[in-house]
Amino acid sequence: MGVREAQKQATRERVVEAARRLFEEVGYEETTIRMVAERAGVSVGSVFTTFESKVDIFNYILFEKFEALFSELQRISPYLRGSACHRIASLMSIAYGVECQQLDLMISHLAASHGWPRRIEDEHNKRRARLIGLFRDALDQGVASGELRADVDLDLFVTMLLDIYVRNYRRAYYERLTPEDLSALTERQLNLLFAGAAAENGGAEAQPRSAQG
């Protein structure tokens, strides 16, 4: 790495660190690039040579946050037991526990996601696809074990799970739900969806067969 590159990298790190603190302290919406530059001890111009815009810095921070959360979910995933419904509910519950520690940042993220540039939307979709993949693995196993019907549109089903997961942050924020409340709500939502996808007699949650059955 040349001197120039090293300098650029150092500026980048300082800018990201300053932005991270400001987003936490005063909130994403209220933070300006000027404030970030001041806190990082660099010029406004330097900020703009490393990032295109405020939402660009935000996206970088979200990327780091996502990587940390995702590797945690991926690590735990193989140890989860029970039905597909239960395992996905557990994954969501773990994510709520992590994200609710910085609920304001999550809410800013969701607000910004409506209307950010295409380029960032594409990156966001890549992260989303990895999360979907994790849920999808649990669903595929559910089908393989005979818990779920084979004719369920799993692509659609899994995006509905993700939509529920995301919308619940709104409820957490405005209804002041704890991660525990949120997990309980998610379980009820998932139970309803999975009831329609359950195989007639398969899976852990099926009713025991009656004596004459």
Binding site: D153, L156, F157, M160, L192, F194, A197
Partner: peptide
């Protein structure tokens, strides 16, 4: 999507 939710309500 409606079909999926109703699937749960019909079970």
């Amino acid at each position: 999507q409606v079909d999926i939710v109703l699937g749960g309500l019909k079970a």
